[in-house]
Computed example of a mutant assay.
Amino acid sequence: MRIGKTIKIGIIDDNPLIIKSLDFALSSFDKPDFSVLFTLNSLTELGRLKNAIYEPDVIICDINMPKTTGIKGLQLLKKRFPNCMIIIHSDADDKFTIIEAIHAGAHGYMRKGLNNQELFYAILNVVEGCLYISPILTKKIFEIIEFQTYHYGALTPRESQIVDGITKGLSYKMIGFKLNISINTVREHIKRIYKKLNINSKGELLSMDKSINYAIA
């Protein structure tokens, strides 16, 4: 997109004060111009934007709102506006949420309370095709990569094979069959794996594996 033209913006947030603050900040810039096409209090209001005039270049959206939220909300936005850049603007700064949102198609992730200059910079970055994450949040991404890859590195080759089987959806019995070990041996390995990774369940293991893959993809 040529930056010299007006950049059309959509804002979605269930907090009227946030919407007002963003609208006011965007109106203070003149190069380039920002035009707020619409503001919504919920993703459930997307249905009323059927006219072709409601085709923004960028949508600034909270990820935690009533009824439709999170990754499901991102999917709805991408379906309705396939050519639009989506910037998540949220208080949620959990590292898993950030990584998952980017992997699901968000082009930027900003923490609420940012200054006007960062807002301006984030919009220009995503419009030019770059990924933008608030600097204060970028550190969290590297922390999860460093912490979890370190712990994965502590696994033995056999333990890594078992983790691979679990992440592929294999049962303990099937893992044992493939590795030519008993199901009780598989369970003993899993106990040691959980201890090394500082987790307590299969769900945590799958979440950890997914987060690392998201972060390095």
Rank of each mutant, 00 (worst) to 15 (best):
L74E: 13
I175L: 00
Q161C: 04
N51F: 06
H151E: 09
I59H: 11
L26F: 09
F177D: 06
S90F: 04
K79Q: 15
K140Q: 07
E100I: 03
Y152F: 15
N15P: 00
D91L: 15
A217T: 14
I12E: 01
I123G: 12
F24R: 09
P135E: 04
M65L: 06
T138V: 10
N15Q: 09
P157C: 02
Y121S: 14
Y214P: 01
N125H: 13
N116F: 06
T156K: 00
E45Y: 02
H103R: 11
K202H: 12
V127F: 13
L131M: 14
I9L: 07
R187G: 12
F147K: 14
I71R: 09
I7P: 07
D30W: 03
P66D: 11
Q148M: 06
T97E: 11
H89D: 05
T69A: 07
F29P: 04
Y132D: 07
S134E: 02
Q161V: 00
Q148D: 14
R48Y: 12
I136V: 15
K78I: 11
Y150V: 04
I87Q: 12
I71G: 07
F120N: 06
Y54S: 04
T185Y: 04
S160Q: 11
F120I: 02
L155E: 01
I11K: 01
V186H: 00
N198D: 14
S201I: 13
I136G: 03
F38E: 05
F177W: 04
E159H: 06
I162H: 02
I63F: 11
K178H: 08
R158Q: 00
F142I: 09
T167C: 11
